[in-house]
C-alpha cells in the first residue's frame, strides 16, 4: 500500500491565495490548497469553474495575478521538471509529423536538457511506458492514425516516461472508451500506490466518487477539499454546482446509490 513519507518532507503541492484572471476578469481567486503525498486527487467542478486553469496556472502555462505555489517546498518554477503533465487531448495538433515513440520520448527531454540526445536508457524507458499503456505495437505510427483513446494512452505514456513524483492530468478520461478508462485508472492507482501524488481534472460525478482518494471541489474558489467520503456530500456538491437541476439530480443519484 501507500509508502510512508518521511515526517519532515514538505508536501508535494502547496498553493496559497492563488488568483488568476483572464482580461482582468478573475477566473480563480484565493485558492488555498495543500496536497499530501501519495494521494490520487480529483479536481471537480462545473464547466468554467477554472479546473484546467488551476493546473495550468500552477505550472506557469497561464500567468497568475496573485498568490504563490510551492512544489516539494520550493517555488514552483524551479521544481517544474519534477512534474509530470498530461494535457487535454485537443491541446495539440495530431497531424504533426511525429511518431508515437517520438511523443513519448519527449517526456525524457526534461532530463536531457538542450543538447543531449536521448540515450538507449531513455528509449527503453519510453518503450516500457508505451508497453505499460499497451501501445507498444503502435510505436512507429504517426500520431494522427490513432483513435481518441489511443491518443490519450500515448499522452499517459509520455507522462509515465517523465518518471515524476507529482502528476497533473487534464481530463484524462475525456472521450475514451470504457476499456481505456479502466486501463488508465488502473495505472493511476498503481502510481498512487508507488507513493506518487496525482491531481486529475475530472468532470464525471458518479465515477469521481469511485476513483479518487481526495476531492477538490472547485468553482472559481475552493468550495471544499478533503477525503472523498467527507466532501462528496449533497450540500457541498450543491454549493459547488449552484442550483443546476440536471447536475443536481445526477448528484442525488450518485450520493444516493452509494449510501
Amino acid at each position: 500500500m501507500t509508502t510512508r513519507p518521511p515526517a519532515n518532507e514538505p508536501p508535494p503541492l502547496e498553493i496559497h491565495d492563488l488568483t488568476v484572471s483572464y482580461d482582468r476578469r478573475p477566473v480563480l481567486y484565493g485558492v488555498d490548497l495543500e496536497i499530501p503525498r501519495g494521494q490520487l486527487v480529483g479536481i471537480i467542478g462545473p464547466n468554467g469553474a477554472g479546473k484546467s486553469t488551476l493546473i495550468k496556472a500552477v505550472m506557469g502555462i497561464l500567468p497568475v495575478s496573485g498568490g504563490w505555489v510551492r512544489i516539494f517546498g520550493r517555488p514552483a518554477a524551479r521544481e517544474l521538471r519534477r512534474v509530470g503533465y498530461m494535457p487535454q487531448r485537443e491541446s495539440v495538433d495530431w497531424d504533426f509529423p511525429v511518431s508515437v515513440l517520438d511523443v513519448v520520448l519527449m517526456g525524457r527531454y526534461g532530463r536531457l536538457g538542450w543538447l543531449r540526445r536521448p540515450s538507449r536508457a531513455d528509449r527503453d524507458a519510453a518503450r516500457s511506458a508505451l508497453d505499460r499503456v499497451r501501445m507498444l505495437p503502435y510505436a512507429e505510427r504517426q500520431i494522427g492514425n490513432l483513435s481518441g483513446g489511443q491518443q490519450q494512452r500515448v499522452f499517459l505514456a509520455r507522462a509515465l516516461a517523465q518518471e515524476s513524483d507529482l502528476y497533473f492530468m487534464d481530463e484524462p478520461f475525456a472521450g475514451v472508451d470504457a476499456v481505456t478508462e479502466a486501463a488508465i485508472i488502473e495505472i493511476l492507482h498503481e502510481l498512487r500506490s508507488a507513493g506518487k501524488t496525482l491531481l486529475v481534472v475530472h468532470h464525471d460525478l458518479p465515477t469521481a466518487r469511485k476513483y479518487f482518494d481526495m476531492l477538490v471541489l472547485l468553482n472559481m474558489r475552493v468550495i471544499a477539499v478533503g477525503p472523498t467520503e467527507q466532501v462528496f456530500t449533497y450540500p457541498l456538491l450543491q454549493k459547488t454546482y449552484g442550483g443546476r437541476l440536471t447536475i443536481l439530480s445526477e448528484v442525488a443519484d450518485a450520493v444516493g446509490t452509494s449510501s
Binding site: K56, I61, L80, Y85, Y109
Partner: peptide, 17 residues
C-alpha cells in the same frame, strides 16, 4: 528536439524548462 517539442506542445516544453 527542443524545437520540435516546443512546436508540438508548448505547455510541456515550458514545464521541462
Amino acid at each position: 528536439r527542443p524545437l520540435v517539442l516546443a512546436s508540438f506542445d508548448p505547455g510541456l516544453a515550458r514545464i521541462l524548462g
